[in-house]
Simulated scan of single mutants.
Amino acid sequence: MILLAGSVVVSGAALGGPAGASPAAALQQQADGPSTQETSYLRVVHASADAPAVDVALDNETIVSGVELGEASDYLEIGAGDHRLTITAAESGDVVYDGNVSVEPRSVTTIAASGEVSENASQPFAPLFIRDDARQPAEGEAAVAVAHLSPDAPTVDVTVEGTGTVIAENVSYAGVSDYMTVPAGDYTLEIREATAENDGSVVTTVDVSLADGSAYTAYAVGYLNAENASDTENASGPGFQLSLAEDATTSVTLPSDADGNETEMPANETEMPANETEMPANETEMPANETETPMTTELPNETETEASANETESPA
């Protein structure tokens, strides 16, 4: 078990949408000593519309090889702190990104390789860092967020076909929506042009399966219109698709009261009691030089049922 403001559990596998994301590793580690205090976990999602399969290296050591558009790698254990991140085209070895990144202690992060690598790019290539530590949904429920990484798609709303339920609204390029909790099950999601009433024209639909007690980020990747591909030599850019990846979830409970009874967080209540610290969940940020103070408080193990929100920051 990974301690992230309580306990963090990565369960099941990364579920493939149209792109067929690769399985995510189930991580279990007891954080009971200094050796685990600086441990973090990292995975890679290929979301660059015109990039070939990519290899990813951390501190000049390859950690992921041959990731295709829409695929998510397993979570990998790394040390917190500053690292050199290098992303290269798998076949040619051409470097598409090389820079320093800062990884916070005891965090679970997805690096989304986003933007375009061609000279005529409308959206420059950049890694987008997304914190994967949503609150674990209640029994019978699942949580889903949407990451908009399609360079030519408009701002979008995402609704559930036949119900009008809004999963995400007004999500623009490089934005990540808040988690939305829904009953676990199978859905057809409608990606729509954003409107005030969430009733814009449907761009495309995608079928997803949301497992009980799990949280996901749906990555919108590829080109809405193939002719908009930045590589003018490639007349058929990869089409628009929504790839679903299962995220880490955080299980949180409050201390017992004076009578020894466990105290449950009320629904929709976001404030923790005095002297307790809440870890932000699925927060999205670009590489930065600021370092967050490590979390040292271990909470009991009862599950908090509300999914947390995503926050998006621009590159530092």
Score class of each variant (00 low, 15 high):
153 A>C: 12
64 V>C: 07
46 H>G: 02
303 T>V: 08
113 A>S: 14
197 E>N: 10
255 P>M: 10
14 A>I: 08
129 F>A: 09
86 T>L: 13
190 E>V: 07
191 I>N: 09
191 I>C: 05
5 A>R: 10
204 T>Q: 10
170 N>H: 12
2 I>G: 05
155 T>G: 04
193 E>I: 12
253 T>M: 15
303 T>P: 00
19 A>M: 05
17 G>M: 13
205 T>S: 14
156 V>Q: 08
58 L>M: 07
284 T>G: 07
149 L>H: 03
245 A>T: 14
192 R>D: 05
260 G>K: 00
174 A>T: 12
52 P>D: 15
251 S>I: 14
250 T>C: 08
85 L>T: 14
290 E>T: 11
301 N>S: 15
130 I>K: 04
264 E>L: 12
177 S>G: 13
208 V>A: 03
298 E>G: 08
304 E>I: 02
293 T>C: 09
135 R>P: 03
52 P>V: 12
106 R>V: 02
98 D>N: 04
214 S>Q: 12
9 V>N: 07
79 G>I: 07
141 E>I: 00
164 G>V: 11
107 S>Y: 01
224 L>R: 15
238 P>V: 15
252 V>Y: 06
263 T>M: 10
282 N>W: 02
86 T>R: 15
170 N>G: 14
208 V>E: 00
204 T>K: 10
187 Y>G: 14
83 H>R: 03
238 P>H: 14
9 V>F: 09
83 H>Q: 06
26 A>V: 03
171 V>N: 11
89 A>F: 06
257 D>F: 02
21 A>V: 01
125 F>W: 00
222 G>R: 00
163 T>M: 06
80 A>T: 10
312 T>V: 15
315 P>H: 02
12 G>K: 01
174 A>N: 10
46 H>Y: 04
122 S>Q: 09
178 D>M: 03
124 P>D: 04
139 E>R: 08
101 V>Q: 11
140 G>P: 02
5 A>S: 11
95 V>P: 05
219 Y>L: 05
185 G>A: 11
71 E>T: 12
286 M>E: 06
282 N>A: 10
103 V>H: 01
257 D>Q: 06
69 L>G: 07
197 E>K: 06
96 V>H: 11
2 I>L: 13
151 P>K: 03
16 G>A: 15
186 D>Y: 03
210 L>N: 00
159 T>K: 08
34 P>F: 11
112 A>G: 10
64 V>R: 00
139 E>A: 13
20 G>T: 12
142 A>H: 05
157 D>G: 00
154 P>N: 06
170 N>D: 09
305 T>L: 07
100 N>L: 15
182 V>C: 04
14 A>G: 13
99 G>I: 02
126 A>R: 06
255 P>T: 07
16 G>H: 02
267 A>R: 13
89 A>E: 14
47 A>V: 00
17 G>W: 00
316 A>W: 01
126 A>T: 07
140 G>S: 00
313 E>S: 15
